[in-house]
Amino acid sequence: MHGPAKGIFFAIFYPILAVIGAPANLLGTVILSRGRCGLSRCITYYLVAIAVSDFLVIITAVILNRIGRIYFQDSVLSTTPACTLSNLLVFATRDGSVWLTVAFTIDRFVAICCQGLKARYCTGKIALLVIGLVSALSCARNVPFYFIYQPLYILDGVPWFCSIKPICYTSLVWQAYDWLDHILNPFLPVFLILLVNALTVRHILAASRARRRLRGTESHGDAEITKRKRSIVLLFAISLSFLLLWATYVGHFLYVRITGEGYLTSLDFNDPRYILQETANMLQLVSSCNNVFIYAGAQNKFREELKKVLMCPFTAVTGCFKQLKHGKTPPR
Rank of each mutant, 00 (worst) to 15 (best):
residue 4 P to N: 13
residue 5 A to N: 11
residue 6 K to R: 07
residue 14 Y to K: 02
residue 15 P to Q: 05
residue 24 A to E: 02
residue 26 L to V: 06
residue 26 L to R: 04
residue 27 L to Q: 03
residue 28 G to D: 09
residue 29 T to G: 00
residue 30 V to M: 01
residue 35 G to Y: 01
residue 37 C to P: 11
residue 38 G to K: 12
residue 42 C to L: 09
residue 43 I to H: 13
residue 48 V to A: 07
residue 50 I to V: 01
residue 51 A to T: 10
residue 54 D to S: 10
residue 55 F to N: 02
residue 56 L to V: 02
residue 59 I to E: 06
residue 60 T to L: 01
residue 61 A to I: 05
residue 64 L to E: 02
residue 66 R to M: 15
residue 70 I to L: 11
residue 72 F to M: 13
residue 83 C to V: 04
residue 83 C to K: 02
residue 86 S to E: 00
residue 93 T to M: 00
residue 95 D to L: 02
residue 100 L to R: 00
residue 106 I to Y: 08
residue 108 R to C: 09
residue 110 V to E: 03
residue 116 G to E: 02
residue 118 K to W: 03
residue 122 C to E: 03
residue 127 A to T: 03
residue 132 G to A: 06
residue 133 L to D: 06
residue 134 V to M: 07
residue 137 L to G: 03
residue 140 A to G: 08
residue 140 A to L: 13
residue 142 N to P: 02
residue 144 P to K: 05
residue 145 F to N: 12
residue 147 F to P: 06
residue 152 L to P: 10
residue 159 P to S: 03
residue 164 I to W: 05
residue 168 C to S: 13
residue 172 L to A: 00
residue 183 I to W: 12
residue 186 P to S: 04
residue 192 L to C: 08
residue 194 L to F: 10
residue 197 N to M: 03
residue 197 N to H: 02
residue 203 H to M: 05
residue 206 A to S: 07
residue 212 R to P: 00
residue 212 R to N: 06
residue 213 R to I: 06
residue 213 R to C: 08
residue 214 L to Q: 12
residue 216 G to S: 07
residue 218 E to G: 15
residue 219 S to L: 13
residue 221 G to M: 10
residue 224 E to T: 06
residue 232 I to Q: 14
residue 233 V to W: 13
residue 235 L to Q: 08
residue 241 S to Q: 12
residue 241 S to V: 15
residue 241 S to E: 10
residue 243 L to A: 04
residue 248 T to N: 13
residue 248 T to I: 08
residue 248 T to F: 13
residue 251 G to Q: 09
residue 255 Y to S: 10
residue 280 A to D: 08
residue 281 N to M: 14
residue 281 N to F: 15
residue 282 M to T: 14
residue 286 V to W: 12
residue 286 V to D: 09
residue 287 S to H: 12
residue 292 V to I: 11
residue 293 F to D: 01
residue 301 K to N: 15
residue 302 F to E: 01
residue 302 F to Q: 07
residue 302 F to S: 02
residue 305 E to W: 03
residue 314 F to W: 12
residue 317 V to H: 07
residue 323 Q to G: 15
residue 328 K to I: 05
residue 331 P to K: 08
residue 332 R to T: 07
